[in-house]
Amino acid sequence: MTTSTQTPAAPTTAVRRRRRGSAGRFQGGNPVVYAVAFVVVCATLGPVVYGVLGGFRSNAQLAESPASLPDPWVVSNYTGVVTNPDFWQYTLNSVVVAVVTTALVVVFGVMAAYPLARYAFKGREVLFMVFVAGLLFPATVAVVPLFILLTQNFGLGNTWWGVALPQAAFALPMTVVILRPFLQALPKELEEAAQLDGTSRIGFFWRILLPLSGPGMVTVGVLAFVGSWNAYLLPLLLLQGDMKTLPLGVADFSSEHSSDTAGVFAFTTLAMIPALVFFLAMQKRIVNGLQGAVKG
């Protein structure tokens, strides 16, 4: 098929003179395009904005006229959530689980990717295929036996580690697949220079490779963090009471206070805002990572 044969040929003929849209792309001042863009924005953000604004209304306002702006603006829903100790406990749990997951994924992932990228040894490709095969094991398949193993065999039932360790394990294959080409791309002259200076391979790993692979590690770290922060199924089975993470808290609050729509909106909004800010700041990294996955 023509698709795949054209792809590699194209970059070689294109001698990197990208005139940023000066004359190139079909220009867009087209009103139709703006109209479509407007519709897309409304459809995308509408529900989120409605939730945020809904938190500033009273239930009476919401019942009377679901589609209007807050009048007057009510802050008691939000203050109610902020003064709710459960909310902060859930946030703490989410932060700890996500940080532990991310640390495990980044440290073990870059360690595994290093020999796979820069050592020559028999069985290297086979070893790499082990990680690639790991991509085919969906976490959902393992969740019920994991619940049994973690609670009965490992004694990690209602703990941060019980969630973080399996999450990290399931994120590792993708991490290795993304990181390996990253580490391979670092010029081999660096390694040779380090050897001339008498640096061992482990020294090279610590002092040169790790600092240089920072961007790649940030990418896989952000992906791991996003995954952990949003995770629901494994925490749902494993965590109770004070150990619950924010998604569990949101779901609980919404079913326990189902008549308090404004309160649910406020709780949900506050639960998503820190994550949203962080993820949007890291948007480029997330996209890079997903693209890396696509290419890997």
Partner: peptide
């Protein structure tokens, strides 16, 4: 903007849509 729903937790999106 188009990326916002994707980075939200499914739970958060689900609760908002449920309402």
């Amino acid at each position: 903007i188009i990326f916002v729903p994707y980075v939200l937790a499914e739970v958060v999106a689900g609760v908002i849509w449920f309402q």
